[in-house]
């Protein structure tokens, strides 16, 4: 059964697509016109009651929340493709820790930047410069911690690429579209980490699916 991924043009679905490519799982994409509110249509709300992307459908098995979906497919196909969870319970603990850091420390700031600098003109709401300024400051502090961490290991959870790194890729790549790439480039180890993870063939392939 081929997995269907809704909303391939957007960053959270790309988290799922990246994972499926790394795990060598066949999938197809179902485009969704988010800019015109298709994610709030009754048909879509039946699939995803909160009206956000992505959703995956695998036969009659439906999932939402990108960070839950990537954990499921990484576990289900543990021995296929790239191992994204770590080899021991302790490594898995660190993968979970940095996934949570991404979700709670990194994401709220970068999401604000992307929303106000990239999507506000498209969605027709005013840009709030104060939010932009505070979010950039917040993200800088988080990336200072990353810089220190990445001075000690090649990837966030240790010396192996994992879901923790993967989960950062789609939103981080927006920094290059909104003139904020200095947040990455001004930090030596973060910058090297970014080159390492964004040069993976999986990301190049995911970008072609927009």
């Amino acid at each position: 059964m081929v997995v269907k991924v809704y909303g391939p043009a957007y960053a959270s679905p790309k988290r799922v697509i990246l994972c499926l490519i790394e795990k060598q799982i066949d999938f197809e994409t179902v485009p969704l016109d988010v800019l015109n509110g298709e994610h709030k249509s009754p048909d879509y709300l039946k699939l995803q009651p909160f009206g956000v992307v992505p959703v995956t459908i695998d036969g009659d098995y439906k999932l939402f929340e990108s960070r839950a979906i990537i954990r499921y497919y990484s576990e289900k196909y543990k021995s296929q493709g790239t191992d994204l969870l770590g080899k021991t319970i302790e490594e898995r603990g660190l993968v979970e820790q940095w996934l949570e850091v991404e979700a709670h420390n990194f994401h709220p700031h970068i999401n604000n930047l992307v929303l106000h600098l990239l999507f506000s003109p498209l969605l027709g709401f005013p840009r709030d410069d104060k939010v932009v300024e505070e979010s950039e400051k917040g993200l800088s502090k988080v990336l200072d911690v990353y810089e220190e961490r990445l001075a000690k290991s090649n990837y966030l959870a240790g010396d192996f690429f994992s879901l923790a790194d993967l989960s950062h890729i789609p939103f981080s790549s927006y920094l290059f579209n909104i003139g904020k790439e200095h947040l990455i480039r001004d930090r030596k180890h973060v910058s090297e980490w970014w080159d390492r993870i964004s040069s993976r063939p999986s990301w190049k392939k995911a970008l072609e699916l927009s």
């Binding site: 302790e90 898995r92 603990g93 979970e96 820790q97 949570e100 850091v101 988080v142 911690v145 220190e148």
Partner: peptide, 29 residues
């Protein structure tokens, strides 16, 4: 925890932060 937040779990030489990561680890272990 370089983010300066509680809680932090210490299990022998493993240090973990982020409450939801800690519960996942404990539930699995």
């Amino acid at each position: 925890n370089p983010f300066g937040q509680i809680p932090v779990l210490q299990d022998a030489d493993l240090t973990l932060f982020e409450s939801r990561a800690i519960t996942s680890y404990v539930a699995e272990k």
